[in-house]
Design a protein around this nucleic acid. Structure first.
Length: 812
RNA sequence: GCGGAGAUGGCGGAAUUGGCAGACGCACUAGCUUGAGGUGCUAGCGGGUAACACCGUGGGGGUUCAAGUCCCCCUCUCCGCACCA
């Protein structure tokens, strides 16, 4: 009896032997085509979770397969090491974020080694190290130079009890995460923004021209919606009295003769001027209420300012309101309300007693004088002066021309996409490299002074201003321009900055002169494959795309997009089919599973349980299947590794045929759609067949089958593959061997099985030689004893023959 | 509300191009093996029937010799966005 499959003994042995990162190194001088595959880097939260195991098992299988296909594979890993949890740990447990983060990284790296992921660890990057984040700062300065970075007042969540700014994820049901009964307020703070909107058009266009086909359609749709381009008009309404202009954005200027009021966002600067004290209190109330907005919709609320504005087309005198449903961040922060032709306006005007004036007639009907609901489709314009009787589309065109001619408006395009607010009132992030000088204003830190190093000794109370603001030695600095006393910026950068370009830095991680060497990047970019969770479909990927375009415009890279292909894997769910969470108690710890079943089994299960793009539940009872399979492979290879074997030609033929069918199947799965669940199922079928014929196989057949089987297993269960490769007396490592090729002739069945149907129902099957003629098949089918009873007393009206496959006899 | 994805045995899933529904695995049942077993092996396993017939891929219609797959209508589930003017 051969020794049993002892996963711990095998895996720990090979983990040690295969530790050298140079084994996984790409060879820059190799003539082989490059393949750059990156899995989204983890946040070092403490331990690997099943989502990581899945993500990295997919990427690892792919990297190993591509190596075996002879590609020059680059496969790095790193740490998204800045972020809020580290700071929370500091507040809750008094551990320094740095120490907490570094020890988490060590732990997770140990786990990744244990899993046997094939990374070139010499490329490792850690975003919280000054060697990395200094280039965030450098990019910030470049953005500033190019006018892509600017400062403006923006609203933040504010907890009055902590007297501190809250991140969105710290706001729970509109209240502070630490004070559940304290509603969050909105406060305006000077913050830094990056002008991603300057690239809105290109970001949108390249979705179709550069990404379609290589990125999941779902992600592209989300990005298109997020960018939200919409064409319309901007029109000035003149305030009665002051003559000040209120500019509104509308996509339906054709309805403007139906406007019955103008509504400003409560934050609108003009609103502050028009409102009295009560009005301003109402505005503040609306702003705060919006922050608490839970899943339930907010009631439409409004307040009349007392002012009137003139419709430039009709001359109508319209009341000016503020309304809680008008967003300052979108369009111009002001709208014209056309209740007859917009549902929201209809709602608003109904509740506030504002008149409704229909001006669009449906193409196939009459103008509804007393509408019960808004008619929002295009139609024929009526009661609109010189524009009457035009179609909506034509009216919009003419009205835009008119606005431009008269100087009170123009055609305009608005994006939903907003500029990227990168300021965080946090400690554990990249310090923003600017200095505030009373004399010179906002002064960038000179490039030669980078990095602006995050100070180590900081108090974490979770209260008060940003922690950095309290560190005098950090804050007080001489102004780089005038040398006078000045203060550093105390905000740090959003951690999405770190993850927007890390895949470039991997290629040249130790460069001290530049973020990376452009020549090296040019060789490897764009990434051939990027793999991660769909949760990052919008923000991370949009910011990464933006960064790439900025880097291109800086002359650093020549690619327009970071990745040609994106793959989004599904989530790993608990046994109850819902997302794993501590509160539900359905969390499965990968390390426990590795202990119990082995890393190879974990990988295999996570790839086998579902196709990789789908969510999959972790059902421990099912893990035994892949485990048993590995045991069977181990047993088969070990006990057949030498000695004589009887040899039965028919059994050999069967086994080799199945072997070649399996190679073909797995090769196709890798090429087409990554359905590794079916690849592994094919391997299971193969081993099942081999067991059935084991006694009869010849020595020479076994000598072909076993090594090939091991090679096929290698991308999915690398540890066992190494062990068996060695047991077969081969020189490793196995993931640097050639992927086996298949022979279609050998894979071919001896005879074609043809299905016999009568009226589309299966009645029998026959074996025939391949390429049998339709006449032959028809004759055989009509004569078949299983088919005959279904023909008696019936008239054959038609016979459909699909050669080598099927005969369908149609009877009446 | 808008947009996207999906619904197949007790469970996870397979069927890639309109051509045998349920591959592979789990669970379950029976037999053999074992001193014993969370072991190994063999067989069975959609419903239905003594066996056939027949029924069966969320529901209803349609196209076709043939539909899980194509078309129309409906229901439900998940995800994203959600007053975007």
């Amino acid at each position: 009896m051969p020794e049993a499959y002892d996963h711990n003994q095998i895996e720990l042995k090979w983990e040690q032997r295969l530790r050298d990162p140079s084994l996984y190194r790409a060879d820059p001088s190799a003539p082989a085509p490059k393949y750059y595959v990156v899995e989204m880097l983890p946040y070092p939260s403490g331990r690997l979770h099943m989502g990581h195991v899945r993500n990295y098992s997919i990427g690892d299988a792919l990297a190993r397969y591509m190596w075996m296909r002879g590609y020059n594979v680059q496969h790095p890993m790193g740490w998204d090491a800045f972020g809020l949890p580290a700071e929370n740990a500091a507040i809750a447990r008094g551990r320094h974020p740095r120490e907490w983060t570094i020890s988490n990284i060590a732990e997770m790296k140990r786990q990744m080694y244990r899993m046997g992921f094939a990374y070139d660890w010499d490329l490792e990057i850690t975003t919280c190290e000054p060697e990395y984040y200094r280039w965030n700062q450098w990019f910030f300065l470049k953005m500033l130079e190019r006018g892509l970075a600017y400062r403006k007042k923006a609203m933040v969540n504010w907890c009055p009890k902590c007297a501190t700014v809250l991140a969105n994820e710290q706001v729970i049901d509109g209240c502070c995460w630490r004070h559940e009964d304290t509603p969050v307020e909105q406060r305006a703070l000077e913050q830094w923004f990056w002008k991603i909107t300057q690239y809105a058009d290109e970001l949108l266009r390249d979705i179709d021209t550069k990404l379609a086909g290589g990125w999941p359609e779902r992600v592209l749709t989300m990005q298109r919606n997020w960018i939200g381009r919409s064409e319309g008009s901007e029109i000035d309404f003149t305030l009665e009295g002051s003559g000040e202009k209120i500019r509104v954005f509308t996509t339906r200027v054709d309805t403007i003769y139906g406007a019955t009021c103008v509504i400003l966002a409560p934050e609108h600067p003009i609103a502050a001027k028009l409102l009295d004290e009560t009005g301003r209190a109402r505005a503040k109330q609306m702003i705060d209420a919006r922050a608490h907005k839970g899943p339930g919709d907010l009631e439409k609320d409004g307040h009349f300012t007392g002012a009137y504005a003139i419709n430039p087309y009709s001359g109508d005198r319209l009341p000016v309101w503020i309304g809680n449903f008008v967003l300052m961040e979108y369009g111009t922060g002001a709208i014209m309300a056309v209740p007859a032709h917009d549902e929201r306006d209809f709602d608003f005007c109904k509740t506030h007693g504002i008149p409704i004036r229909p001006v669009i007639r449906p193409l196939d009907g009459e103008l509804d004088e007393n509408p019960e609901a808004a008619f929002t489709e295009d139609g024929i314009v009526e009661r609109s002066g010189e524009f009457s009787a035009l179609s909506s589309a034509e009216a919009r065109r003419k009205m835009n021309q008119c606005a431009e001619r008269e100087g009170f408006g123009k055609a305009a395009i608005t994006f939903r996409l907003k500029d990227w607010g990168i300021s965080r009132q946090r400690y554990w992030g990249t310090p923003i490299p600017v200095i505030h000088c009373a004399k010179c204003g906002t002064v960038p830190v000179p490039e030669s002074d980078l990095p602006v190093v995050l100070p180590h000794d900081v108090k974490f109370t979770g209260e008060g201003r940003s922690p950095l603001a309290e560190v005098a030695s950090f804050m007080n600095v001489a102004c780089p321009q005038c040398g006078g006393p000045a203060k550093r910026e105390s905000d740090t950068m959003d951690t999405f900055v770190d993850s927007s370009w890390y895949f470039y830095r991997y290629l040249d991680p130790k460069n001290e002169k530049a973020p990376f060497d452009s020549a090296i990047v040019a060789k490897w970019f764009p990434m051939d494959q990027y793999i991660g969770g769909v949760t990052h479909a919008i923000l991370h990927l949009m910011y990464s795309r933006f960064f790439t375009k900025v880097m291109r415009d800086l002359g650093l890279v020549s690619n327009d997009e970071p990745a040609t292909n994106l793959f989004t894997q599904g989530m790993v769910l608990g046994h109850d089919g819902t997302a794993m969470s501590k509160s539900k108690g359905n969390v499965v710890d990968p390390e426990e599973m590795i202990e119990k079943y082995g890393a190879d089994t974990c990988r295999l299960f996570v790839l086998f349980a579902a196709p990789p793009e789908k969510d999959m539940p972790w059902i421990e009872a099912s893990v035994g299947g892949p485990r048993k399979f590995l045991e069977r492979v181990h047993r088969f290879v070990v006990r057949n590794s030498d000695g004589t074997a009887p040899g039965d030609a028919a059994a050999d033929r069967r086994a080799l045929r199945k072997l070649h069918q399996t190679i073909r199947k797995i090769t196709e799965d890798f090429t087409n759609r990554w359905h590794f669940n079916t690849s592994i199922a094919a391997l299971m079928e193969l081993i099942n067949d081999l067991y059935a014929d084991e006694e009869s196989l010849s020595r020479s057949a076994l000598d072909q089958i076993s090594p090939t089987l091991v090679l096929l297993l290698a991308p999915f269960a690398p540890y066992l593959a190494e062990e068996l490769w060695e047991a077969l007396g081969r020189k490793g490592p196995v993931f640097r061997q050639r992927w086996p090729s298949y022979d279609d002739e050998l894979a071919k069945e001896d005879a074609a099985e043809v299905v016999l149907q009568v009226n589309g129902k299966l009645r029998g099957r026959i074996l025939v030689h391949f390429g049998a003629s339709s006449e032959e098949l028809e004759k055989a089918a009509l004569a078949d004893p299983k088919v005959q009873p279904f023909l008696s007393g019936k008239q054959v009206t038609k016979v459909v023959v699909v050669p080598d496959k099927l005969v369908n006899i149609v009877v009446r």
